[in-house]
Nucleic acid binder design. Structure first.
Lengths: 351, 351
DNA sequence: TTGTAAGCGTTATCAG
DNA sequence: CTGATAACGCTTACAA
């Protein structure tokens, strides 16, 4: 046997053509059977399925995507995969979307718009069916890439006016105001905000702004001290931040944290210093982590709609991909969870 | 102009052919320029790059993958994306692999071998360059799918003898023994193990076995009570488990937990009951979570090599994909972190 | 160095 | 309902 003039890499994989030959039908029929089984006669269906089983055929989605110009791939960018809030969201998205045959291409930006751009660029090369980003801050180039293509885009976890397309999230400024309001209602009169990575975490910064605004509106413009602990280990950083804060501003009686780990660190430091929480100082965190309800005192917090965001993003995407009209903004709100770290002690504080 | 007999969907995307036409060269030259720029003359390179820029060409990796039979996609299955340990691993894998042009297709199995199988099946349809699984427990069909294909497979987070291909992890039985040893050294003589999801989390179960073995070997075969808190909210479950345990076995003086959240829950319950940790009872967790070092008492724990696993898996994969020979088993060990919850109080306990 | 042409494994179109 | 046949956008042997 002389081989044909041009040999090519032989992938040695079972292809649809193999199945077709084996079952004595054409490739198109096999393809049809795979996509719309109802439109193939029973006898042929059986023979094809037999062939698939005995040959161990696995469809090649790459080829299918190329031919049909529909990849069923969705690119998702989150700031961090280790942050369990985003992990929850992605997890729910993946559950919902995989049921409809979509695959997630996941990347993390480390809170950097440049890394996000680089991820978006890579994703675009996969001609994804849709792209999901976290937040509203993108580079100019990211915006250009995304607006110049017909691919549906969802921005999640934040709300605002500069949306590219669809928005699913909640207002962090409102969350900050609610946290401040809660502390004020608990009797606090001098608030502070301690946050990690405020320089790069826009959502945390928005909550800080919310707290500031609250001080202006409801506490006669008392200053709200904002401390950024940076990017180090959060718990230790929180302890140090608390020490600094109480040294420089001993009158602070309520602190909002950008997450519950910081709040826990502060609680530990307070205990070490003999400061009573919430009696001497009330605290409220953000995130409602696993541990927030099982430490002493338990941590008051704001619970973001982390799972709901995933569900709603998935739903919006599925609708959009089916051509259905979709809402451009979905505000899922948040839940303030009052616990011991900010328990009302009005009799003492206000007395 | 009569259109050709068979019209086809027109994706209206800029293709390599467009770039070729625009710059007056052939498509293969453009392709070459993109893959090995050095082999194209300077003048042509310039013209091609010009065309790419003005046309805004984005390569179609799908088509490339199909043609070259190399997808640069890696399928990864973790039990849960919300578990920050796996998240850390995946995060590091993604960082390392994306630098080499690989994309991660991520899925979570919810600790179910069946869901893992379904994910593997889906991944296979993308003809991935490699597959990464968590643990060693797979369905028979998963094994068949994987062994009957030449795709490199890495199993991570566990060590054992039934490996499919490459293994990167550490011994959970050893970890359990080390945890027990640590408590024994701290003066404990009656140990117990409290774990979440023991029914489905094989690694936690292995650690429980390690603790049991330790009781047999080093505590004269004293019984080691093992409690499974199931799948509910961990902190609350831990509190209840502790109550039950101390009611039924008041002599227990050391507890190993399957993670630090459970340990924290137990600490809270102990405080509520006036039981002193570690004085009355010593505790050790697993995972070295964010909060473990910032609660009171701080939580002794075992720190798994979560980032290192990601790094090593990536490295093994890159080597393997470049045809280099690789080690089939990489034992990364673990680190026992002694903190306050198990601080030695020998004078009292042993006195 | 550059071009030609033959695939890669599907799906879409259209004729039977 | 079934089957040719032409894309899909790219890579790669091979020729020039």
């Amino acid at each position: 046997m002389s081989s044909p003039q041009r040999s090519r890499r032989s992938t040695k994989r079972v292809t649809m053509t193999d199945v077709a030959k084996f079952s004595g039908v054409s490739a198109s029929t096999v393809s049809l059977y795979l996509r719309r089984p109802g439109e193939v006669s029973g006898s042929l269906s059986r023979r094809i399925q037999d062939a698939i089983d005995t040959l161990g055929y696995v469809p090649n989605l790459m080829a299918g995507a190329l031919a049909s110009a529909s990849t069923r791939v969705i690119g998702v960018v989150v700031p961090s995969m280790v942050n369990s809030m985003f992990a929850s969201t992605v997890s729910r998205m993946q559950s919902a979307l995989s049921q409809h045959g979509y695959q997630l291409l996941l990347g993390h930006s480390e809170y950097s718009a440049e890394q996000e751009e680089s991820l978006v660029r890579t994703f675009m090369s996969w001609s994804p069916s849709a792209i999901v980003l976290t937040g509203l801050q993108h580079t100019r180039e990211t915006r250009r890439l995304l607006t110049s293509s017909p691919i549906p885009v969802v921005e999640m976890w934040e709300l605002g006016s500069s949306a590219l397309d669809t928005l699913v999230g909640f207002s962090h400024e409102e969350a900050g105001r609610a946290q401040a309001r809660h502390l004020i209602d608990a009797g606090c009169r001098r608030l502070a905000f301690i946050g990690a990575r405020l320089g790069i975490d826009n959502r945390a910064r928005l909550r800080a702004t919310g707290v500031s605004d609250a001080c202006r509106d409801w506490l006669n413009d008392t200053p709200c001290h904002i401390i950024d602990t940076g990017t180090g280990r959060m718990a230790e950083a929180a302890r140090e931040a608390l020490r600094t804060l109480l040294t420089e501003h001993p009158d602070v009686d309520g602190i909002v944290f950008s997450n519950d780990v910081l709040a826990l660190g502060a609680i530990t430091e307070a205990q070490a210093q003999g400061i009573r929480v919430p009696h001497d100082i009330a605290l409220i965190g953000f995130g409602d982590m696993d541990f927030s309800n099982c430490c002493l005192p338990s941590i008051s917090t704001v619970r973001p709609p982390r799972e709901e965001i995933g569900d709603q993003v998935a739903m919006a995407l599925l609708d959009s991909l089916q051509g259905k009209p979709i809402e451009t903004t979905v505000d899922l709100g948040f839940k303030l969870v009052a616990r011991e770290s900010s328990a009302l002690s009005a009799s003492i504080k206000l007395g």
